[in-house]
Every structure is written in structure tokens, then in C-alpha cells.
Design a binder for these strands. Structure first.
Lengths: 333, 333
DNA sequence: CTGTTAGCGCATTCAG
DNA sequence: CTGAATGCGCTAACAG
């Protein structure tokens, strides 16, 4: 008999007990005499029996797998979240089905439904924009969903993030205190609430507190990649800007390199603050000052929250904000 | 009735056919009259019926999910492979269960068995070292396994890679042609066959062809991270080395920055070739010359190969080598 | 504490 | 071309 095909019946027969008893020891049910438990365990080990999780899932209506919807694993921001998610998931005996969505709305609902058909016990969603259609799908699906490092501006779903507003505000304040008069705000698409409704708001708040007038022409909305900010440099310099708050590290690296290539000295002639503290921020020269975004922890806490929710435990707060810090490296004075 | 709980029986009743017929239209079985097929399809759409993949898996013994064992999603090298894997997987209607192994041998067998219990139809394995224990587990598991961007020195498993020997040899030759007399080979652990049995061999071949004597003291085995090569710089310079072939981009970035911090000019005073052409190689200054490693394609082809194998199609070659190229950016003359 | 029994939702014979 | 019946491997009452 093939190792793959050993069933609970086989070990029951071999152990001279009923399959129900085997099932009990498998599931740690206490209602089984230690002696028979040992007997069964021995047979299980001897036969190298491995429970069929699919059958289990069908019978119990629990698959111990969660779906993870991610824009792109290749993006270090989300990959770091994913790593935190997987570590905690496996700690709680869950597997993750990972699905790339490219942040594309139609792909997102497609993979969501695919995940649901696989009967996942829960879903961790990562994405830069959540529209009504998606919210509706979330609601209609009867699985629990948690957002990781992603915001829903109306908080219709539990989520784990940092306080983006406050973080960006702090950075902007530092730049103001360093004497900069014109500070750019450079982000990925402003259609993304995380940029428009959080980070930009933090930027504006800092300006306001310091009696700076908000100047729309100092706000740069890009597609978020390295080249887009690299190409922005001339336009930025023409406006006598001397510092920038940037919302992702690739963007910041592009800006930095663009500046350097034009012989503008960072931080002497231009200061940069970035947002996610990924490896990139330490690889470039000068190294980038940044928010110390605890990406791994955001993923980990999101997954932990999901286990609680799936387990029907009480959770006091469904919108969790983790602590961040600011690290000043070489791109700021 | 809850959308999640609509079964094949419900649509059968509603369609006034048997569940067998519904099953047939679901599976594209041609033995069903177009008229009844339409009737059933309409009901399916109306009720928003979504087949339960778990039940399907139990009945058909196919789960349309494959396991993906990865050292660390956070590593851009493997993340790029994973992205290629997922894209092709979803193209063929498979989902991927992603499991991080940290390249740890005991974790690897643990997640392997976990994946097997989930009845995955196949496995893509990524890892820097495959030992006999693991090979044995591979053999005992009756699922098909394909290696992506990872080598088994005895080729006991189908795999997709590039020709590391030839690639490194080409790089080394260029460095030799540029007049360098002492060229370092800097890699992650030499316990990893990919470094010891492939890349180092390529390095040696180039030396030999040019009548250079191989000097063991020019070979640096590190733990593979940025800091480890950064810290190596003094030791390297003390040996009058003027160029290096580096086996991963983080390592190369560390070397580059270490050199730059000591005011050694790259490429004028020191040339660097790196291996994986990840974003990093373009973010640092000067940008790193590299093998143009088609990471996404390696993952994609590995997944495609797996689908063929799972489908019992004939595959002529089970050890696939993809084409690479060399791109000379700013770290070489 | 242990065994018997009935599904979980579907694919798949086997008849017709 | 369609339906009835069986079973995939396991969990979860229900009895005892």
C-alpha cells in the first residue's frame, strides 16, 4: 500500500480500535484512555500515516488555510508583510494561499472568489485601493478578512497599519525645523487613499502647524516606481524645492539618484525622508532617513488578529495602529 | 440559503436535472445536450453557485493547488521566481500554497509533509541546498516536484536554471580581458552546490583558460548578506585584488558601498560583476554590471514544466537551462 | 472511554 | 444524453 493512501481505517484496523478513536487521538480529544492513545500513536508513527487535510476540510468545514491577496510579491513592502503573515500563520498551523492581484480591481475579485471556492478560513488582503465593489464582495463572502498595511478609508474591515498621518507629519516637521521653505510631497498615485487621505493629510497638518501655506504644485503624484521619480528631478529643482517627503523607498531612491546625477548634494542641498525602511533605504548612498515602518510586524499582527477573529475571540480594537519611529540616516541634516 | 452553502444538489433541483448532469456541465463534459447545458448554466449564474473545491478535491483526488517552498519571500531573488510561478500557475488554474523554509533543512521536510497532507498536486522547490534526507523525502512523496532557480548536484529532480558555470565564466573572462590580475570570487556559503559546484567552477575555468593560477585565498565564502561583504573590503584590498565576481546582488552592493566608503573608485580602481540583475543592481551607484538572470522566466518555466509533468505529458528535457546575457553597466570598464 | 453511523459536496461508475 | 448509486477520508453526533 502506498504511503499516500493510508487512511484512518488502516490505522484503526492495525490498532484494533475504531476509526472514531483514531480520529480522537488525531484531534487531541481528551476522551481517550492514555494506553489506547499510545497504542494508536505507535501505529500512526509506524505506518507513517498522514491525515488527508482535504477530507478533513470537507468533514469539519475548516481547511486551516487562509488566502493572502497581495499586489505583487516582488514588491519588498508587501513581501515583508507576507513574511510576517506566513510566520504567524504557520505558528497557528495555517497555510497560506498566496495570490498576486497587481492591485487590479477585477483580478482582485477574481482571486477572492477563487479563494472562497477553496474554502479558506480567512483572508488577509493587501492593496492600495478598496472600492465599493470590493467592499461588497468582502461583505458577501462569509469569511473573515483583515487588511494588512492597507487602508480602507471607511474602515469597513479590520486592519493593521501604522499611523501614516502622524508619521508623515513628524517627518515634515523635521524638514521644516531644518529650515526648508519649500518641501515636496512625492507619492504613488493620489488615487490611493493611503496617500491622499493619510500621508498627504499628515504633510498638510505639519505645514499648517508651522504657518506654511499649502502649495499644490509641490505635490507630485507618480506611478510609484524608481524611474518616475528619477524623471521628476528637473521639475522639482525648477521650483526651488529643497526637501521632500517621499512615500515609498523606490521612489525615494529614484529621487536621490536623480539628484546626485545632477550634482545636487543630499542632504546638504536637498533633504529626503522616505517611508518604509526597506533594504533599499540602506543600500543607496547617502542612506535614506525614514519612518521605521515595522512591516514584518504589521503582517504578523494582522495574521494574529485574523486567528482571533476566526476563533470568535473578543477583539477590542479592529483597527490596529502599530508603533513606528523615525530614523535619521544620511539624507537629512 | 447562504451563498456559501449552495450545493450542486440545489442547482440540480432548480434546473430539474440530476446532480450528475450539473457536475458534467461544471466539468465541461461533452456528453450533455446544449439545451440542458444552457439551462443549467443559467441556474448556476442566477444562484451564483460556486463549486466547493474541497469536496471536488476529495472526490477527484486533485486539488488544483501546488505547494511552493521558498527560503524567504523577502529575498528578491526568490520573490521574482515566485511571481513567475504564480502567474503561470493561475494561467493553468492552479493556486499556490507558499511556505517559507529559511533554507533550514528540518523546516523544509516539515513544510513538505504539511504540503503533502494538503494533497497538493505538485511542488515547486526553491532552496540553496538539497541533502540526501530531502531527496529521500522527495522520492517517497508521490507528488511531482520541480526545482526553480535551485540546483540538485545529482539532478535527481527536474529543474529550471541558467547555466551558472558558463555565466560566471563569461564574467570572469571579461574581467581578465580588462587586465585584472587578481580577481576575487565572492559568494554565499560554499556549502551550497550552486556556489561550489557551479559558479566557482565557472570562475576556475576562466582562470584556467587564461593560464591564471587559481588562488584559494581569493575565494570568499560569506553568509550572503549585505553586511558580510561590506566587512570584507579591507581584507580584499590588502590582497591587491582589483576585481570581483559576486554571486548575489546584496553581496555586490555591500562590496561596492564598502569600497566607495574607502574612496576606492568603481570601476576605475576596482571592477565588480554581480549575478542576479535584481532591482538592487540598478539602484546603487555606480550601477552594477551583471548576468541578466531571467528570474521571472525561471519561475514561469518551472511551473509550466510542472503542469506538463502533472499532466503526464512527455517532456524531453527535465533539466532546463534558460538563456542569460551579460549587461555591462557602470561597475566594469 | 469507545464504537456506530451519518453526512460533508462532489466526481464517477454503471445502467438505461 | 441522463439519472441513481457509490465512495473519496474524515469529523461529529449519538449510543452505549
Amino acid at each position: 500500500m502506498n504511503k499516500q493512501n493510508i487512511t484512518i481505517y488502516d490505522v484503526a484496523r492495525e490498532s484494533k480500535v475504531s476509526m472514531a478513536t483514531v480520529s480522537r487521538v488525531l484531534n487531541g480529544n481528551s476522551n481517550v484512555r492514555p494506553a489506547t492513545k499510545n497504542k494508536v500513536m505507535n501505529v500512526i508513527n509506524k505506518m507513517e500515516y498522514r491525515p488527508n487535510a482535504v477530507a478533513r476540510g470537507l468533514a469539519s468545514k475548516k481547511t486551516t488555510t487562509v488566502g493572502v491577496i497581495i499586489p505583487d510579491v516582488t514588491d519588498e513592502y508587501f513581501a515583508s508583510l507576507a513574511r510576517g503573515i506566513d510566520d504567524i500563520a504557520s505558528m497557528y498551523k495555517y497555510n497560506i494561499i498566496l495570490a498576486n492581484s497587481d492591485d487590479d480591481s477585477s483580478k482582485q475579485v477574481k482571486v477572492l472568489n477563487n479563494l472562497l471556492s477553496k474554502q479558506v478560513d480567512g483572508i488577509i488582503f493587501m492593496g492600495n485601493e478598496i472600492n465599493d465593489k470590493l467592499r461588497q464582495e468582502f461583505k458577501n463572502s462569509n469569511v473573515h478578512i483583515v487588511l494588512a498595511g492597507s487602508v480602507d478609508e471607511i474602515n469597513s474591515v479590520p486592519s493593521v497599519n501604522i499611523d501614516y498621518i502622524s508619521a508623515v507629519k513628524t517627518e515634515t516637521n523635521k524638514l521644516i525645523n531644518n529650515g526648508n521653505k519649500k518641501i515636496a510631497f512625492i507619492s504613488g498615485s493620489l488615487n490611493q487613499p493611503i496617500n491622499l487621505d493619510y500621508r498627504l493629510v499628515g504633510y498638510k497638518k505639519a505645514l499648517q502647524e508651522n504657518n506654511y501655506v499649502f502649495d499644490k504644485s509641490l505635490v507630485f503624484s507618480t506611478n510609484g516606481n524608481y524611474q518616475s521619480s528619477y524623471n521628476l528631478v528637473n521639475s522639482i529643482l525648477s521650483k526651488n524645492i529643497t526637501a521632500a517627503v517621499v512615500t515609498n523607498d523606490e521612489l525615494a531612491a529614484g529621487l536621490l539618484n536623480g539628484l546626485t546625477d545632477l550634482n545636487i548634494k543630499v542632504p546638504d542641498d536637498f533633504e529626503i525622508f522616505t517611508s518604509n525602511d526597506t533594504k533599499i533605504s540602506r543600500l543607496v548612498r547617502p542612506q535614506l532617513s525614514s519612518i521605521t515602518h515595522p512591516l514584518y510586524d504589521v503582517g504578523a499582527v494582522a495574521m494574529r488578529l485574523l486567528t482571533k477573529i476566526m476563533n470568535n475571540e473578543d477583539v477590542d480594537k479592529k483597527q490596529i495602529l502599530l508603533n513606528y519611529d523615525i530614523v535619521e540616516r544620511q539624507s537629512t541634516k
